[in-house]
Nucleic acid binder design. Sequence first.
DNA 1: TTGTCGGCGTCGCGCCGACAA
DNA 2: TTGTCGGCGCGACGCCGACAA
Lengths: 480, 480
Amino acid sequence: MAQGAGRDPEELFEELWRACAGPLVELPQTNERVFYFLQGHLEQLQEPTDPALLAEQIKMFQVPNKILCKVVNVELKAETETDEMYAQITLQPEPDQVDLPQLPEPPLQETSRPVVHSFCKILTPSDTSTHGGFSVLRRHANECLPALDMSMPTPTQELITKDLHGSEWRFKHIYRGQPRRHLLTTGWSTFVTSKKLIAGDAFVYLRSETGQQRVGVRRLVQKQSTMPASVISSQSMHLGVLASASHAIRTHSIFLVYYRPRLSQSQYIVRLNKYLESSKIGFDVGMRFKMSFEGDDVPIKKFSGTVVDKGDLSPQWQGSEWKTLKVKWDEATNLNGPERVSSWEIEPFDASAPAITMPVQPSMKNKRPRETAEGLDIHALEPAQEFWLSGRPEQHEKTSVSSSEPKHQVAWTSERAGYSAMSSSISQKLFQVTSNDARVPPWPGLSAYHADEPSSKIFQCRRRGKEGARHVPSVWRQFD
Amino acid sequence: MAQGAGRDPEELFEELWRACAGPLVELPQTNERVFYFLQGHLEQLQEPTDPALLAEQIKMFQVPNKILCKVVNVELKAETETDEMYAQITLQPEPDQVDLPQLPEPPLQETSRPVVHSFCKILTPSDTSTHGGFSVLRRHANECLPALDMSMPTPTQELITKDLHGSEWRFKHIYRGQPRRHLLTTGWSTFVTSKKLIAGDAFVYLRSETGQQRVGVRRLVQKQSTMPASVISSQSMHLGVLASASHAIRTHSIFLVYYRPRLSQSQYIVRLNKYLESSKIGFDVGMRFKMSFEGDDVPIKKFSGTVVDKGDLSPQWQGSEWKTLKVKWDEATNLNGPERVSSWEIEPFDASAPAITMPVQPSMKNKRPRETAEGLDIHALEPAQEFWLSGRPEQHEKTSVSSSEPKHQVAWTSERAGYSAMSSSISQKLFQVTSNDARVPPWPGLSAYHADEPSSKIFQCRRRGKEGARHVPSVWRQFD
DNA sequence: TTGTCGGCGTCGCGCCGACAA
DNA sequence: TTGTCGGCGCGACGCCGACAA
């Protein structure tokens, strides 16, 4: 509960924050320069105000469409009640808002990040039911959890972890059952209840090389229950945001923005260099592109589409670049893709994806017709998903999870460069482990493995869906 | 959960809202004129901003200290999560903010209010523990709950009630035990858990003459958990509120204020007539006054004090009348009285209290020295409390609750004129009831009683204390 | 490999009157 | 009159392997 108490190694806090935020969340660095799109910020604040009034206010406050700012500070935080993470970003408008830079600025030096082992698993109905505990996927246990003493008849240990607020959570980690599997039992249900987890939400676990353990949560949809208890009217909020920026520009002073990355994917604080890169491309009508989304079984999934129109989103913001591109998605089944995007959210279709280690193989055979999909069928997403998986030549069952190795080799997040997928060898080593039975002596290779491949990260991430209600989503119907 | 669904008889909703808000909460009526004190509004928004910046903004937005507005609309609402009630008030600044009215305007006609039976009981540790149900005080049961069929061996019925959101709550009401008493059993614990009630919070029950039943909650302290999930910076909020008012004045348009009466007692929207009355009195240094608070055992408790200083609260608001009176309270033990008040929050000491039916008898004998009170002793408040109770000449034990009749005759709320305390006769009738044993035939006088005294209301109200933490407060220590 | 289920022991909720403040 | 407690019955929680996808 206590805020500020628990962040002993600040670095771990940031690691946990990023793990919970997901691979798509991108934050500016301190001292970097960014463009701040007021329009996008206002868009995140609930119900829109009267457009006429808004137009008048924009005029009155004389705010440009995008504001060039220096990032003075970035503080990562999390909501006490919901664990929703957000960033408090301190911005300072640059003196000159007219002659905007045309050339990228020298990149800031990357601050080295601590090495952690982490996983993220979408919770099944069994995981969240009161009937039992949490089933740890074997590879997650092997790669992330502290090694068990396999000489014991039923290997057991207690995991002592902390969440973003510094609160402690203890879990009994046991390796039992026939066939043997890793489970979290005692302590798990308390966690589920306290965090109000439901099937479809995801559990995040993280362990540093020093043995520090952290846990977190990534929710299926942004619960509207984070509904910001009406303190002031929505119109006052809009005016306040406008006035803050306007005042900061005129007085060249700082102002604060609370950036909630999981509220919507729209980035309204864009790194200058990123902006310049995308404007150099110059997306236009007819051009094909691709865009990243969170995947179920992979951290990042990409969908492609075509720009079909280009123009102002609203007349109040004439000439703004905010969501000027109207797009059509290739896959008709992708119900969630936004109708309009900003140019910096997408990448050219043909350019080689920098962080995708596997070659793209568009020649996927879709063996099953999908036209009878009832409801929002998650499987309908599979063709595109498989598109970005390693091109495994064999067909496989819809719900198949039996072939593990190739799945490891895909779509590693590019957020922090330098990672490479080594999961092929990982899988082989894991296989040795799993083929060991309970009675064998402790296997030294397990801990050695951690030292060998410290930077490997396995993510199994949440799906972005439209089923906003807090009940078991349709994807889990099969388990009812 | 469903909003908007449940307010069948809108009138009952308002009754419930007011019962939960407490007797001190005063709302302006539609079409009435009020003064809106921006300074007070800003004060309620968490952490203050930089004073220098604030001063600059006040200057820039050119807002007067108080704004004369017409009340265009008042909507009563309640927070989904916490049931905290608030009012969304639509204001329209009057064209002339310079020549302010000096004479009261004709009072609006009172809209007749439906007759309801209601009670409000502070929850004991037993009420909130998982060990059992809720103990209904006898007079509450007799006056408010539907009559039981006393011919049954253990009279029982099911109460079907709704809360402010329209959600249904069912309670088993049973009359059992030795000696017999009224209890709410099945359904109660779910309510306690869902509403997150703890000892010290209060349960509100209300029944209309048509038999409609409502339940609500009045919390001990305003949980900071209503903490308004940082959506925009506090500075932006301040600017937004300022800008909204400023814009409304200039364009003579409406703006919205969310008024949260239980966040603090400070009224920053003051009826014009009330303001004029208080300014006619002209409080000044040296004058004695009294002020209303919520009491534990009585709806309203009054404390007296002396004005010791007068002046601006902050230099940013020069000449404002907001909390200009610095006061000293008569009772040194009253730790909670504010140091500064606005003139409309207090009344002259000598003027006859309009709604107090009992004569004030200041000649209370305090038989016990209080200097050894450990911690924050609730009993230390008693002298002043008794001061405003009917002057019972006999001394009594600190924790005595045995002498019931005189306590009923005090401090009835003046909020809605026309009520008079008839509890003396009530108590006598109740005595007949309670002296009946379980086996007697149904007592026809009980239902007849309800028809006789429809407007009587018994409140047992929450104490305002400093023990903010969500644990059993010190007043309950005796039960540990 | 892992999601779900039947089996079942145990714990705590919650209903009861006793008792005393 | 009513707050708290001991007694205790029952239902849900939660740990287990079986089984199958």
